[in-house]
Amino acid sequence: MVTDKSLDPQLSRRSFLCKSTQIALGLGVVSVPSISCAKALGKRSLSFVHTRTQQELTLTYAWGQAYNPRALAQISQFLRDYQTGQTHPIDPKLLDILWAIQGEMGRKGVYEVISGFRSPQTNRKLRRTSSGVAGHSLHMQGKAVDIRFPGIDTDQIHQCAVEMRTGGVGYYAKADFVHLDSGQYRTW
């Protein structure tokens, strides 16, 4: 279910607190990104549906500064290489990016996952059959995910992620998905 930010006083307060921190620090030298606000604000939850496996997952993966190891293991299993079944730990910063995007866009809902972790074998196969697949993809390190968010145009997700400047952001308009990763900030 997608909700309007104005209807959720908790999201509005969190957004206000984070933006207030950014504004206050912006007057000086440093600005705090939205993800750093996540750790100060309590519970962080996400919902997913995998477009390849049709599996669904909703869970709370962190509370304050503590990540839930059991939830992280569930996410790693959910975002496994759907072709080989191999799993790899998923970077919690990637989850915080997804969580922050929801907050910045003022929406809660279910992320549609196109691709999470990729084994080197799967990545090589995709490179042979698709353009735009990196040889040293962060998907192989559990640091990248390709997503869309029903009810929000993928261009809006792309723009939000670009403005956040918290990792790699790729926009694949024809395939209708956004690549997000927890590596250095860059766009394509």
Rank of each mutant, 00 (worst) to 15 (best):
84 T>Y: 08
16 F>R: 14
38 A>K: 06
74 Q>N: 08
161 A>P: 05
161 A>R: 00
147 I>G: 01
3 T>P: 04
67 Y>H: 12
20 S>T: 12
132 G>C: 04
93 K>S: 13
126 L>E: 05
17 L>K: 14
165 R>W: 05
70 R>M: 10
19 K>C: 12
151 G>C: 09
9 P>V: 07
188 W>Q: 14
179 H>M: 07
93 K>W: 11
59 L>V: 04
156 Q>N: 07
85 G>P: 01
21 T>E: 13
127 R>W: 12
152 I>Q: 03
155 D>G: 14
66 A>V: 12
129 T>H: 15
99 W>R: 01
22 Q>C: 09
105 M>H: 01
64 G>N: 13
32 V>L: 14
154 T>H: 05
44 R>E: 09
117 F>L: 08
143 K>G: 09
9 P>K: 09
109 G>D: 03
132 G>R: 00
97 I>D: 06
95 L>Q: 03
72 L>M: 08
47 S>F: 00
178 V>I: 06
50 H>I: 02
145 V>K: 00
114 I>H: 06
122 T>H: 05
126 L>T: 04
161 A>W: 01
44 R>W: 09
113 V>H: 01
187 T>D: 09
98 L>H: 08
25 L>P: 12
82 Y>K: 10
104 E>F: 07
131 S>V: 09
182 S>H: 03
2 V>Q: 02
14 R>H: 15
19 K>P: 04
36 S>L: 13
122 T>S: 12
73 A>S: 15
46 L>E: 00
174 K>C: 11
129 T>A: 15
138 L>A: 11
149 F>M: 03
60 T>L: 07
69 P>L: 06
44 R>L: 10
32 V>C: 11
59 L>P: 02
64 G>Y: 06
114 I>T: 12
70 R>Q: 15
134 A>R: 10
14 R>Y: 14
97 I>C: 02
61 Y>S: 00
88 H>V: 03
175 A>K: 04
38 A>I: 10
150 P>K: 03
22 Q>D: 05
